[in-house]
Structures are given as structure tokens and as C-alpha cells.
């Protein structure tokens, strides 16, 4: 049985570690898709959370057919995105599951990633929240959602050069904050 299947089986039984591993693994692609289709990082985050809630609530009945778990999540996210646009009284954008399948970061967690303590992760999240709004958005879209420079620029309504500048300033600010809090040397 593959690692993913093992995790899904354990998650079906309510194993919290397995749930966390699956959410960590697939958070970014779902968030990226939601960012791309809602053009709003807050809405995207809400949709991403809802996607995982729906997916895992239906997990006891989830049977792997030809679709991977990632595709299963993608379909749920696309339905939620469609609902999101309907609620806003606008026609949803044409969304394609192919967007979701775009190459992203390696889904397998890096060894160091698991070693990152909960406390440290919370500290980092707090520092990101401290950034000016545009810098924070640039970080969320470019790094958390793994969008391209062009996509980020489009979503933020800025030029690519402006996004380049925003991401550099954001990272410089974060580096300083991390050093101050002893997260990095």
C-alpha cells in the first residue's frame, strides 16, 4: 500500500497525525487553485479550509478509483469556487481541473519540514501577519500559493516589476523579524 493510501486509511479512522500530514501535503495546491479562481487570498483560504472539511467528512466513503486524492480534493474545491461566485451574484470563472494539476512543489514533505515545531510555525505565521497588506499578499500568493509572477501580478492588479519589488521587501522584512526572534541566525 502506498504512503498516501496508508495516510488516507488512517485519516478515515480519525488519526490526527495522518490528517495533518494530508492537509500539509495538499494545502498548497488547493490554496493555489482557490487563489487563482477567487483572486482573493482570504476567500481562497476560506475555500481551502472548506475543501478539506468536506473532503475529510466524506472520507469514510471515499473509495479510490482512478482519481487520486489530489484530484478528489480539486473537484471539491472547484465546486466550492463555483458556489462562491454564485453567492456573489456573478458568473463563476471558467475553471478547469487542469489548472489544479499544474506542477507545484514536491508534495512530499521535506525532512526538515516535519522537524519544524508547532511553536516556530505559529511565530512565523504571526510575523507574516505583521507585514504590510500588499507585501503579505505577495508572500501568500507567490510563496504559499506558489503562483507565478505573472499570475500574482494579475491577481494583485500590479505590474510584474511591482510584484518583484513587493516580494523582495516582504522577504527582507521577514528576515529581519526572524533574526530578531532567533528563528534564523
Amino acid at each position: 500500500m502506498s504512503d498516501e493510501k496508508v495516510l488516507i486509511t488512517q485519516a478515515q479512522q480519525g488519526d490526527k497525525a495522518a490528517l495533518e500530514a494530508l492537509i500539509s501535503r495538499y494545502w498548497q495546491p488547493v490554496y493555489r487553485l482557490a487563489c487563482l479562481k477567487t483572486a482573493n487570498s482570504e476567500d481562497a483560504q476560506e475555500i481551502t479550509q472548506e475543501t478539506f472539511l468536506k473532503a475529510f467528512r466524506a472520507l469514510p466513503g471515499y473509495r479510490e478509483t482512478n482519481a487520486s486524492f489530489k484530484t478528489y480534493l480539486g473537484r471539491i474545491a472547484l465546486n466550492l469556487i463555483t458556489d462562491h461566485w454564485r453567492k456573489k451574484g456573478r458568473s463563476p470563472q471558467v475553471v478547469a481541473l487542469a489548472d489544479f494539476q499544474e506542477p507545484l512543489t514536491d508534495p512530499a514533505p521535506l525532512p526538515e519540514e516535519s522537524a519544524l515545531s508547532e511553536e516556530r510555525r505559529e511565530s512565523i505565521a504571526r510575523m507574516v501577519a505583521m507585514l504590510p497588506a500588499e507585501q503579505r499578499q505577495a508572500v501568500e500568493l507567490r510563496i504559499f500559493a506558489a503562483l507565478s509572477l505573472q499570475e500574482t501580478a494579475k491577481l494583485m492588479g500590479k505590474t510584474e516589476a511591482a510584484v518583484k519589488m513587493l516580494q523582495q521587501r516582504a522577504l527582507k522584512n521577514l528576515r529581519r523579524l526572524f533574526q530578531e526572534h532567533g528563528i534564523i541566525g
Binding site: Q12, K16, E118, I124, A125, F144
Partner: peptide, 28 residues
Amino acid sequence: EVALLLKRTGPPPAVMAGLVAKLGDELA
């Protein structure tokens, strides 16, 4: 390196903790 560190944090910890707690109990 800072960007890599951000990537390693994954989903916002508060969101993750809330999701895992809620889902874990529901599924169990």
C-alpha cells in the same frame, strides 16, 4: 532561505490545528 522557511510552515498553524481537531473528532 527565508522563503524556504515560509514554505515549510505549510498551512497557517491556527487553521491547521482547528481543522485537524475538528476533523479528527468527527471522523472518530
